[in-house]
Amino acid sequence: MGLKQAPRAWLTKDELAHGFSKLMQAEFEMSMIGELTHFLGLQICQQDSGIFLSQSKYAKNLVKKFGLESTSSVRTPIRPNVKLTVDLLGKNVDPSLYRSMIGSLLYLTASKPNISYSVGVCTRY
């Protein structure tokens, strides 16, 4: 009586990747052209040391879209203990433009968690 070989309980990385690819192609319209470099506005850099995400192109487009090219950047937009108040002498802001800016910034926090607090504070207004 011969011994039967037990079925493999594990798959190689290539087999898993191929299976995932087939599953996604069956569910969504897509093609496998090569290494993933962009996805939903994220720039993706795959290296031996890991996978790195960036939204630098998206951020540059935001600066251009909202006409902020001539402004200077700051390392930390808002200190955590700062309280925002109404500026009665300031000029009114277009609400839809403001919502558009905040929505765009919320998407940017996917790769820039350092702005999450500042964007969160601005979402209250």
Rank of each mutant, 00 (worst) to 15 (best):
C45W: 03
F39L: 08
L3A: 14
Q43L: 04
P7Q: 10
T123P: 00
N92C: 07
N114A: 14
L42Y: 09
M32C: 13
Q46P: 00
Y107P: 04
R8F: 07
R124L: 03
S70A: 14
L68F: 10
C122G: 06
E29A: 13
I115G: 12
K91A: 07
G2W: 06
K22R: 15
G19E: 08
E15K: 09
G90T: 06
R124W: 01
G67N: 12
Q25W: 03
Q43F: 02
L16P: 00
E27N: 13
K91L: 09
A6P: 09
S100V: 03
Q47N: 07
N81I: 11
K60D: 15
S31Q: 10
L108H: 04
N61C: 09
M32R: 13
V74G: 11
S118H: 06
M1S: 13
Q43I: 03
G2Q: 14
V63I: 15
S96I: 10
F28S: 09
I115Q: 08
I33C: 15
V119E: 01
Y117K: 10
A26M: 08
T12M: 01
T85W: 01
L36M: 13
L36A: 12
E69V: 11
C45K: 14
S31R: 00
W10Y: 12
V74M: 12
Y58L: 04
N92D: 15
Y117G: 06
P95A: 04
G103P: 06
E27S: 12
L11P: 00
N92E: 15
L42N: 08
S118T: 08
S49E: 14
P7W: 05
L36F: 03
S111M: 04
S70R: 05
Q43M: 05
A26F: 06
E29D: 07
F20G: 02
L88D: 05
A110V: 13
G41S: 04
L23R: 12
M24P: 14
K112L: 12
S21Q: 10
Y58I: 05
K64V: 09
S104R: 06
I44F: 04
S21L: 13
R75Y: 01
L106K: 14
M24I: 13
L16R: 09
F66W: 02
K57C: 12
P95I: 02
P7V: 09
L62C: 11
I115S: 08
N81P: 00
L88A: 12
R75M: 08
P113N: 10
K112R: 15
M24N: 13
Q25H: 13
L88E: 11
H38N: 09
K65C: 01
G34L: 06
S73M: 08
Y125A: 03
T109D: 04
S56N: 11
G67F: 04
L106G: 05
M101G: 01
R75I: 08
L88I: 15
R8K: 11
Q25E: 10
G50D: 09
I78Y: 03
G90N: 07
S49A: 12
L108I: 07
F20P: 00
F39S: 04
A17K: 15
K60W: 11
Q25I: 12
S96L: 09
K91Y: 07
S54L: 06
M30N: 11
N61L: 11
P77W: 05
V121E: 02
A26T: 14
H18C: 10
F66E: 01
S116P: 07
K83W: 01
T85I: 13
W10E: 06
S54T: 10
L16C: 13
G90M: 05
P113Q: 11
G41D: 10
T12L: 03
S111K: 02
